[in-house]
Nucleic acid binder design. Structure first.
Lengths: 341, 341
DNA sequence: TTTCGTTGTGAGAACGTTGTCACAACGTTT
DNA sequence: AAACGTTGTGACAACGTTCTCACAACGAAA
């Protein structure tokens, strides 16, 4: 393997000089630089980035831990992250925790051992204590999608309250008054905030979700959405609208409804927090909150860069504005819409 | 930052001994080992993996270059790769080339500079010369989904011919005789093999695709599928079936059809090589070839591990068996199915 | 002329680990 | 009793780079 020293010998200069040419820093005369570049070319020299990282203590690598890499939200976020980091010369180490906190901490530890310059983490619910422990005085961290209460990190995520508000206002406007909710564990921000917001905004209209129409799973999984859907399908009295707090749950619900022949919106109306892949091609397009996933990734990455440069910035939580997209999955129940055509 | 030497001092032993304890190799008495482990604990020592890699010349990292990270096929493949590599202690550097060959080579180079232990590459069409050049005598490479003619690498991909054969046999069986095709550039294996296979197997039945019903795009993009769809929608005489050689193209086609009110399968039948995300929830489920993406990733990763251990294995091409999944997107045109109910 | 800043180059230490070698102590086989 | 293998430990070089320092040459400012 060709090293700096080999190039130096070939070009008749010192290793220091070659280093200066390769990294374009320090003073080098054009004549010598040219000679070095030729030697690099001839020997097909490729810098040993590991040695460089070892010496310079910077790896130009950032670690990303997501809970589920196949989730389109994280996909898009990943893309946003890459768009910002790649032009700056960073590469991404990507790990998927499958929503297992132990794995998540494991990966964070490993990233730290590998001396990544920064970490972007969509936590599956690690405790602030554990995380602070792992990162105490080490690589900067930016959380994404999920706040960890008490952890000293920046965080970029949806304005869940606002998203849910839009959904509720719309549903009320369409005349709905009887609601069910399918959500995930409250230890994850999405579950906690969206569930709370839903009840809070319903309350503004004097509505509430009866306990028997609340499905709070212990994971944002297709399986749980499906299970809830099975139950709803066989219910003697159904809510007029079911709110799914997460795109994966919605998928599950719709699959169950399809299997049981429950028609949306004829039999039940459905709204979803989070868009579904290829949703435009569904038999009924779903009224949903579109999350700015890509932009969230971009903002998180930019924030991480900032923090890598200035360690002592104050920590902040950035809320991204979601968007209401109206489909055909909500039946109009108010008098206006119900007029004969 | 705590180093081996710090731990050694604390435990009253030499750095060598600490290294032996941490890596669990060589002889260490249980008594000393315990003392070292305590020192590690107390000081919160974390091995500097960069230094280790530098010295031992192995990074426990593999690089993955895909053409489009959001494509569900690559998503799944990535997952398969991770399932195999993660238990072995490897982490993945992931890069998306956006189907730009220059970016692809760029990333491969960078991976090489970073001394990854291996590379899995879904090439966007780099020349064998360029790739051989980059990797000459360096990290082992396994190609995925796309063969690069003349490059000295292993490759794992679909048995495209067999997949298309199943599709053609089915279509003929349903009574179809007039076909159109939407495909991608022939410089990419998927485009080349699937297009060729389609014509070859049609020929067995005395059928062929007339030139005016052939759409060979210069990219496997939604846009191109959509453009082709627009044309087909306004055609005075349409094929009875359109074959999309790739899931992304199918998405485009269906979007265009939806916009123009073209009904599948009433107006045109559609078959797709490659499944669509959430396809079960579409207004019409698409008859399609399901690709063993995850398994492909697993096989590629396993092969890479093998090659990392034995440099001199013969190169081989592994073909993965695709699966025909029948949906509702093909209209039965034969007499049997057309009997009145 | 002296002083000083800029430009250009090389010598050599340092980064934190692993691996090789040396050596000592001990138990077992010859 | 000698020879040998196993167990246990430490010293020290090496890995390929960057970084700091030293120094020399030169032109410009004092």
């Amino acid at each position: 393997m060709v090293t700096l020293a080999d190039v130096a010998k070939r070009a008749g200069v010192s290793p220091s000089t070659v280093s200066r040419v390769v990294n374009q820093n320090g003073y080098v005369s054009e004549e010598v630089a040219e000679r070095v570049r030729r030697a690099v070319e001839e020997l097909d020299y490729r810098p040993n980035v590991i040695a460089r990282s070892f010496r310079s203590k910077t790896t130009m690598t950032i670690g990303v831990v997501v809970s589920e890499i196949t989730n389109p939200y994280f996909m898009e976020a990943l893309r946003g992250i890459e768009e910002v980091l790649s032009p700056e010369g960073y590469l991404m180490l990507i790990a998927s925790s499958s929503s297992v906190v132990e794995k998540e901490l494991q990966y964070c530890m490993e990233f730290d051992r590998r001396r990544v310059d920064g970490i972007i983490l969509a936590s599956a619910g690690s405790s602030a204590g554990d995380l602070n422990n792992v990162f105490r005085g080490r690589s900067p961290v930016v959380l994404i999608d999920r706040i960890v209460e008490g952890a000293e990190f920046d965080c970029v995520l949806d304005d869940n309250d606002e998203g849910v508000r839009m959904l509720v206002d719309y549903l009320i406007g369409e005349g709905h008054r009887k609601f069910g909710i399918i959500s995930g564990p409250t230890r994850i921000t999405a579950g906690k905030e969206r569930t709370a917001a839903f009840e809070k905004h319903l309350a503004r209209y004097g509505c509430s979700v009866p306990p028997e129409w609340k499905w709070i799973g212990d994971a944002f999984s297709v399986e749980y959405g499906q299970a809830a859907g099975e139950v709803i399908a066989t219910l003697p009295v159904r809510p007029s609208t079911v709110f799914c707090a997460n795109n994966v749950l919605t998928t599950g619900l719709l699959l169950a409804f399809q299997r049981h022949g429950v028609k949306v919106p004829d039999d039940v109306s459905v709204v979803s927090y989070g868009a579904l892949e290829n949703g435009e091609l569904f038999s009924t397009t779903i009224t949903q909150i579109e999350q700015p996933a890509r932009e969230t990734g971009r903002v998180a990455a930019a924030r991480l860069l900032q923090r890598m440069r200035h360690k002592d910035l104050p920590f902040e939580v950035v809320r991204m504005p979601p968007r209401l997209v109206i489909g055909r999955s909500v039946r109009a129940l108010n008098s206006y819409h119900n007029l004969p055509e």
